[in-house]
Design a protein around this nucleic acid. Structure first.
Lengths: 288, 288
DNA sequence: ACTCTGCATAAGAAAAAATAATGCCAATGG
DNA sequence: CCATTGGCATTATTTTTTCTTATGCAGAGT
């Protein structure tokens, strides 16, 4: 149907009436009289040539035609309504909530975020750092950046960069490390991903030793401990570039392994807003 | 913004003007005068408290606010417009185009389709049978059912049933087949998936022989040849239940292997319509 | 400077939408 | 069984919104 012929106001009345199940209540929501709603809907039904409601003695019932119409209208009006809500003081402004694994936030995103906000004046980003097992829906996030193999059912994902892991430690500790075998005498810091060290040792041509000690939740924590000379951590060196070039941390070996990558994820069943799509596009481009 | 306060007609004018880049042309599309459009948009800008256009001497330019508004409106109006278009002769009717691998269409879907159409009177399904390498976008399909491991970038997928493969042949051929080794003396019919027979032989505890002969594109063709006694095919027996229970085809061995499953797929970047979503939901429930 | 194109403006005309009052129907309850 | 009530439809009328016509005004090109 051509734009000029779409009876928008009548469709709005229909949507409200269908949701309310009553012309009278719809009239209240629409701030008009019941007769006005009745008129609108009668006219709409006339234009479509189809009844949209069964008027029964105990309320309204949607016909199949009404049933087909309602969800599209509700969704469209909701979306329009929410863009309009983002106008305040004559400015369009949208805030999006992004969950980020701490390592990525600190090692890559934080320092680049300003650039995005600069080029997108209408969008504010609220970062929530968390571990990898974030629940987007429960925490009310629009997007989440996490590390893994890219298998999360129900999520729409896009790849960001790969981040190979390599042993990282303090310079003082590194001086004692000649060959990979010498690692066995060091305290190895490990994450909750139990297979990372074994994979690295295999690539280095060794059998993995049994690793003891606490399991850390965050690479940032492990890096901090490593910097204090309290052990050797297996970390995505790309995320610790700053400390590596400062010399606060060093890479005793070149061997690196790739066990996954970062991804940006969102709920598949929730349409991204313009701002969410813009952020997603920006980060995909910047991080690939 | 509350439903009653959404200035729908003004938003429509804005959408057209923004798309056209001109009030004058928008007026033509809207079948009104230029002054009418000007009024509408001025009023909208006033209500939002924000300019939506920069009026330059060489045409209109969207402000950031206009930029934020436009895509949502265009999408919403397009969607509404297309639901309304599906009303003809006072009935809502939607046709969806579904690509289906022939095997699945013949062996499972066709006989169940009537049930869906019965319970969804406003929806017609057009089936297009094809091989597994269908291109949804190019062929203008809304959905495609295909076999595989579930890795198709750009597609949103949902799992249907698993369909283990097992050798199938005519009863006359089966009588000569005692142990798996006896298969080696038979003509083995093969699909373009070169690894299927090897995987089956491995599970049966044998080394796969070298297989000769043409590569068939469709399990249905192979089943037909097998029924004629022209060889043994490795087929998803669930799709040939009818012929198996008729005794036209038989399963000489119990050993079966699972190399993938059926999936229902659609383009991720295209919002499913109500009917597409309904069909998807129906088939997922019916086929899992 | 003149003309053309395109948006803004003002006042009146037309159209659309809303209202008030009332009708109609079915269910409910003494 | 009749009165009452709740809820949608109808009609005539009023109000509001929207559109039009006519004109103004600004910038760009000739």
């Amino acid at each position: 149907m051509d734009r000029p012929n779409i009876p928008l106001n009548a469709l709005r009345s229909f949507e409200v009436a269908a949701r309310q199940g009553s012309f009278t209540n719809a009239a209240i929501e629409l701030c008009v009289t019941q007769a006005a709603v009745s008129h609108q809907i009668l006219r709409l039904e006339d234009q479509l040539g189809a009844k949209l409601f069964h008027r029964t003695s105990k309320g309204l019932l949607l016909t199949p035609e009404g049933e087909a119409l309602l969800p599209v209208l509700t969704a469209s009006l909701d979306r329009i309504s929410s863009v309009l809500d983002r106008f305040t003081d004559g400015r369009y402004h949208e805030t999006i909530n992004v969950g980020v694994v701490t390592t990525f936030a600190v090692g890559w995103l934080a320092e680049r975020l300003a650039k995005f906000e600069e080029s997108h004046p209408g969008i504010s980003i609220r970062l929530f750092t968390n571990n990898n097992r974030v629940d987007i829906a429960r925490e009310g996030l629009d997007l989440a950046i996490r590390f893994g193999a890219g298998r999360w059912p129900g999520l729409t994902i896009q790849p960001l960069m790969e981040t190979p892991l390599t042993p990282i430690c303090a310079p003082s500790v590194a001086s004692a490390l000649k060959a990979p075998e010498t690692l066995l005498s060091q305290k190895l810091l490990r994450s909750y991903r139990a297979d990372e060290w074994p994979i690295w040792f295999k690539k280095a041509g060794m059998v993995s030793p049994y690793i003891e000690g606490p399991v850390y939740d965050s690479s940032v924590a492990m890096a901090e401990l490593a910097a204090k000379g309290l052990g050797v951590a297996l970390l995505p060196h790309a995320m610790f570039q700053a400390q590596l070039s400062e010399g606060r941390l060093v890479r005793p070996f070149d061997t690196e392994v790739t066990t996954g990558r970062y991804w940006i994820t969102r709920l598949s069943n929730k349409e991204p807003t313009t701002a969410v799509a813009a952020f997603e596009a920006w980060i995909c481009k910047a991080a690939l």
